[in-house]
């Protein structure tokens, strides 16, 4: 079949793919390039090569503090989202509670409904019920949008596992809870882990909810970059961004190793 494609068309296809990839990856390459500049301004191609802006970022409190806040937040979001999301995924997979189809659509809805509306609503509700926004309001908001990712990856794994394992465990004397812990959860593990990496990535990169729910004393890394961008971009932003890209690449590779990126992306 491939032989039947005219050569001209094939050449055009290769050029087309390269152009699109350049377009899609260009900004990331540019950010990485700028971060290595030796000059004082944001320029691409960079003026000379140096690691000075990485040194600057790693020694600047604004960046290290916000990075630590972001990492701590992402870790806690990952913890909450994996625990909560796994439970929902297992229950939905078993299809025994009524309205499973509807519930599946509902629990995944934070993925497609406008985050800004949710952010505004949560800010309003938090202010009237709890009071001042804090680290915890961010934790709550990020967890809500991270849970659907865990549900999706865990469901993807469950869909390919032997449907009779749980019943087999029951006939071997394991009650419902021991079946869950000794049989079902070990099956889900790759999905939970992949979902956890997604959750970490979502929380670490998230900007919209953070803009609404932050408080003056907490600053996440994306918000730090956002504020800098609005005022005075200098190459330290590029260095911080490049570090974030590196982390993302690491997470994507981890997800792919655990689960196969194609199974969760499509």
């Amino acid at each position: 079949m491939v032989e039947a494609v005219p050569t001209g068309v094939r050449a055009a296809a290769v050029i087309f793919m390269l152009l699109v990839l350049a377009f899609v990856l260009g900004p990331l390459v540019v950010v990485a390039g700028v971060s290595f500049t030796a000059g004082d301004y944001v320029t691409f191609p960079p003026e000379g090569l140096s690691l000075r802006w990485y040194r600057a970022v790693l020694s600047a409190d604004v960046y290290t503090h916000s990075a630590i806040t972001s990492l701590r937040l992402a870790a806690l979001v990952t913890l909450a989202a994996t625990v909560i999301g796994t439970g929902v995924a297992v229950a939905l997979h078993r299809r025994r509670i009524p309205g499973t189809g509807f519930l599946s659509a509902l629990v995944l809805s934070p993925l497609v409904l406008p985050t800004i509306v949710f952010a505004l609503g949560l800010l309003m509700l938090w202010s009237s019920v709890v009071g001042r926004t804090s680290f915890y309001s961010l934790w709550l908001g990020h967890t809500v949008i991270a849970v659907p990712y865990v549900i999706r990856t865990t469901l993807a794994v469950l869909a390919t596992s032997d449907p009779f394992l749980e019943e087999a465990a029951r006939t071997m004397g394991a009650g419902p809870w021991r079946t869950l812990f000794h049989v079902t959860l070990p099956q889900c593990l790759p999905g939970i882990a992949a979902g956890g990496f997604f959750a970490f990535n979502i929380s670490f990169d998230e900007a919209i909810l953070s803009l609404f729910l932050r408080s003056p004393d907490i600053m996440t890394l994306p918000i730090q970059i956002y504020t800098q961008l609005e005022f005075s971009p200098d190459p330290s932003i590029a260095a911080a961004s490049a570090l974030m890209i590196a982390l993302t690449i690491f997470l994507i590779v981890a997800i792919d190793r655990l689960l196969g990126i194609q199974r969760v992306a499509a």
């Binding site: 019943e167 465990a169 009650g175």
Partner: peptide, 20 residues
């Protein structure tokens, strides 16, 4: 009685061995 409280054992068509 739920299955775990019956004195039975079952062999499934797909064997249902625990892969982990």
């Amino acid at each position: 009685l739920p299955p775990e409280r019956r004195d039975i054992a079952m062999v499934f068509q797909s064997y249902a061995l625990l892969p982990h």
